[in-house]
Simulated assay, not measured.
Amino acid sequence: MWEPILTLSEMPCTSEAHDHSRVFHGIPPPTFDLPLLDTPDIITANVQKLIEQTPNPRHSFIFKVLVMHLHQFVNETRLTTDELKATINFFTRTRQNSSQEISLLSSVLGVSALVAMLNNPVTGGATDHSPLGPFFKFAEDTADVDFGESIASEGKGDYMYVEGRILTTEGQPIPNAIIYTWETDANGFYDIEYADRSQIDCRGRLRSDDNGKFGYRAVVPAPYAIYGDGLVGELLRLLGRHNMRPSHIHMMSLKDIVDDEEARKRGFPRGGSFKLLQYDIVLLTEEQSAVMCARVEKERGIITGGGKY
């Protein structure tokens, strides 16, 4: 059995506390020889050879492809030592700053949208998918809303009415489907962002009727900026990119908590300035299923104007 040259207790120590994660994990070095690093291609080939030892075939495949493209990137860009140091520092600070920064970074680089699309291909006219996002709350923090009732309390913005149907890809209605919906208020904030939040607001859970129909009152959501004071905001400024999300409403439909079919819709008011893909920082597609957006008389819940947008 191969043993490390130095045990943790024998390693040189400083006045700082030991990092107890620095211990030998029991995997010995490879039994094969690797050529000396005389050329860039040998470096890549050596790493690929080491990855072949990976027990899980899927993991081996993923990391071999990752290394191949990562090394191609370094070669093509002729990455400098200073640029590498800056990149490592960026990721280090991202990890220290917040776990949400990593998720946000994945979104603004289009990775989250790409993974969602590849893993949820749209077939048979189904509703387009969309990454879930950080502001969704399941049953423990979502109120039940009856057909036609409001998910928003008074004073949260201009009212509108949202309606639709939950259908199979063959066009048959899906009764009693659960619809989760959530949105920002007129100020561009979700309820869970308020420090003094006292109630569930601008979000709800309802069910489709026997014809697959659902309807509820909401408020016209506002476009909003993602957090710009973190490292992702720093990256966006470096790249000369804006940090805005367009006005949108989230929806997710579940049937008996088994069907993983999403019915997410995003509503845009007439004349809204965020209707095109280039205006969405997380690179999600524009709304494919139009949502009726109209003023609603608060007393009677009657649509008084508007149309499909």
Results as ranks from 00 to 15, higher is better:
residue 60 S to H: 03
residue 287 E to Y: 02
residue 191 D to H: 15
residue 265 K to W: 11
residue 6 L to K: 14
residue 157 G to S: 15
residue 284 L to R: 04
residue 52 E to H: 01
residue 248 H to M: 03
residue 279 Y to M: 13
residue 234 E to L: 02
residue 263 A to M: 06
residue 264 R to N: 09
residue 156 K to R: 09
residue 61 F to N: 11
residue 135 F to Q: 07
residue 157 G to P: 14
residue 179 I to K: 06
residue 20 H to M: 13
residue 214 F to N: 09
residue 105 L to W: 00
residue 41 D to I: 02
residue 248 H to P: 05
residue 193 E to Q: 14
residue 234 E to N: 10
residue 258 V to I: 07
residue 84 L to M: 15
residue 272 G to L: 09
residue 254 L to K: 12
residue 278 Q to S: 15
residue 266 R to A: 12
residue 203 R to K: 11
residue 83 E to H: 06
residue 252 M to R: 05
residue 104 L to R: 03
residue 232 V to A: 05
residue 28 P to I: 03
residue 52 E to L: 08
residue 251 M to D: 15
residue 293 C to W: 11
residue 171 G to W: 00
residue 167 L to P: 05
residue 212 G to E: 03
residue 238 L to Q: 10
residue 87 T to A: 08
residue 247 S to Q: 02
residue 293 C to F: 14
residue 290 A to Q: 09
residue 23 V to A: 15
residue 293 C to K: 10
residue 97 N to Y: 04
residue 64 K to T: 13
residue 248 H to I: 03
residue 239 L to C: 10
residue 108 V to H: 04
residue 117 M to Y: 07
residue 250 H to K: 09
residue 4 P to W: 07
residue 197 R to H: 08
residue 306 G to V: 06
residue 180 Y to E: 11
residue 153 S to P: 07
residue 301 G to T: 02
residue 56 N to H: 01
residue 100 Q to P: 14
residue 138 F to A: 08
residue 235 L to H: 06
residue 113 A to F: 01
residue 74 V to Y: 02
residue 34 L to M: 09
residue 212 G to S: 01
residue 183 E to K: 10
residue 58 R to N: 01
residue 72 Q to G: 15
residue 108 V to E: 11
residue 287 E to M: 01
residue 140 E to N: 13
residue 6 L to H: 15
residue 1 M to A: 09
residue 140 E to L: 00
residue 286 E to W: 00
residue 211 N to T: 08
residue 227 Y to N: 08
residue 212 G to L: 02
residue 188 G to Q: 13
residue 276 L to T: 05
residue 276 L to C: 15
residue 30 P to T: 02
residue 270 R to H: 12
residue 80 T to F: 02
residue 296 V to I: 07
residue 237 R to S: 15
residue 90 F to M: 10
residue 134 P to R: 07
residue 38 D to Q: 12
residue 196 D to T: 14
residue 195 A to P: 12
residue 53 Q to K: 14
residue 45 A to K: 08
residue 167 L to F: 00
residue 120 N to I: 03
residue 41 D to A: 04
residue 49 K to Q: 12
residue 168 T to I: 00
residue 282 V to Y: 04
residue 99 S to Q: 09
residue 105 L to N: 05
residue 231 L to Q: 10
residue 99 S to N: 12
residue 138 F to M: 13
residue 304 T to C: 05
residue 93 R to A: 12
residue 254 L to M: 13
residue 173 P to E: 07
